[in-house]
Simulated scan of single mutants.
Amino acid sequence: RGGSGKTTASVLAAQHYAMAGLNTCLVINSQDPTAEFLLDCKIGTSPIKCNKNLSAVRLETAKMLLEPLRQLKQADARVNLTQGVLEGVIGEELGVLPGMDSIFSAIALARIVWFFSNVNNNKKKEKLDIVVYDGISTEETLRLINAASRAKLYLKYLRNLADKTDFGRLAGPSLLRLVDEAMSLRGSTSQFNGTLSAEIWDSLEKILEIRYWSFAFQRGSSAFTEPSKFGCYIIMDPNSEISVKSALRYCGCAIQAGAQVSGTFGVAYQHSSAESVKEIKKNFSPIPFASTPHLSMALPLDWDAVLNNLSEDTRNLLSPPTHCNSCLSPVQFDLARKSVTLLMPGFDKSEIKLFQYRGGSELLIEAGDQRRVICLPPKIQGRVEGAKFVDSSIIITMK
């Protein structure tokens, strides 16, 4: 959350991992110069080495627009869909429209962390152990987390439109051929026909699917729910009541968006009291909380001293996900009682709405500005019998 020490905490985490010997990349998605000051290096749109194991890069959407446009032009030159009109588009003239930041951030992160393993790319990439992402506004980051699963649903309905309407059958093949060429899903030698059209749809769905778990609490984007691959941290100012309440709310929103919330951090100022920290831990339980040191901007930092003085709670919370033994499960199924328990911090019962579709095999949960689908195991599928709110969790009983 902006203004709460988010960038400072991101730099601290990146330095912690790098000095532990892990090859780390810090990805900054803003024009905030804080990271440059703390790392004492200029961060640009190409990765730059800040120290032995740490590189950093800044995402700038205006520049990221150019490469996809170039690829589209190359694809259009082969399929001649726009008959040369696209070639006349000058990328440098194009500005950034609302929503583009999230889309291009997702593309850039996909390339960095290599989520899209089934997309061909001949460029050699440096193996990374940890990617620390300092995102844009909290809402935009939440949209980014669940973008793949949401896009998969839109893709499903677009496919129905293309298969079952005259307009779709007329325009769909040409558009899909352009997509096929631009994304190189099948290579330049493939012959386009009706069968290939279906195969391209399947390839697009696989890209968004990444991996399917029958009873994962959210279809698609499953990498975001795996503690071994992804962790989300909420940053707050423990001395600000508004900041603490906002952090608790965003914990619930992040879980609702499909993220694995690994913990929360609060910046420890000299006037921070032990009582306030204890109260925060109680309010955020079972989500772990730890304090991070306040980093002064007045003098160059001695990172060895900063990292050596980290508390044990902070070190444990920053442990790489593969070594984390206390990761939360935001969805728990009780087959014997035919119930589902959902961790929903920051919400009260009146803000949560339940819907059911597809014969009781799924639950759609609406809370705040997020929706998610819970796929129910066969043994507890059915209609909702009741729901109660207990200790930041909602317990849903099925008939």
Rank of each mutant, 00 (worst) to 15 (best):
T341H: 10
V384P: 06
F115Q: 00
T8L: 02
L109H: 04
A254N: 04
E241V: 06
P345H: 11
F37S: 07
S350N: 08
G231L: 05
Q270E: 15
D237I: 06
I395T: 07
Q260M: 10
P330V: 00
N309A: 12
G95W: 13
N160I: 07
I48A: 07
M236N: 00
Y212T: 07
S246F: 05
S105E: 14
A151N: 03
D76L: 01
D237G: 01
M398R: 02
A290F: 02
G168S: 13
N51F: 06
S222C: 15
P377W: 14
F192A: 03
K349W: 10
G44C: 09
T189Y: 04
S272P: 00
L376R: 03
E351P: 00
S190F: 02
S296C: 15
N308K: 14
W201E: 11
K156M: 13
E312T: 05
E366H: 10
C375D: 03
T341E: 03
S174E: 05
P33R: 06
N283S: 13
S339M: 09
A387K: 10
K282A: 02
L318S: 12
V132M: 04
L94M: 12
I90Q: 14
N316L: 04
F333N: 06
I130A: 12
S285A: 15
C41E: 13
S117A: 14
N309Y: 00
L38N: 00
Y357C: 11
P293E: 01
Y154N: 05
S339L: 13
V340T: 10
K52H: 12
T138M: 07
D391I: 08
D391E: 13
L59E: 09
L69I: 14
S190P: 00
Q356I: 11
S296Y: 15
I90K: 12
P238G: 11
A35M: 08
M344F: 00
A254M: 12
V306C: 04
L59V: 08
K6C: 07
F37A: 12
L175N: 13
T189G: 03
V261I: 05
E226M: 15
T138Q: 08
G360P: 02
F265W: 04
G88H: 07
F215L: 09
P320Y: 09
A162R: 06
R315I: 14
F104R: 09
S184D: 12
T34Y: 02
M236C: 14
V85S: 13
I136R: 11
I28P: 00
D163M: 11
L343K: 07
F37E: 11
R70Y: 04
T195I: 14
N308R: 15
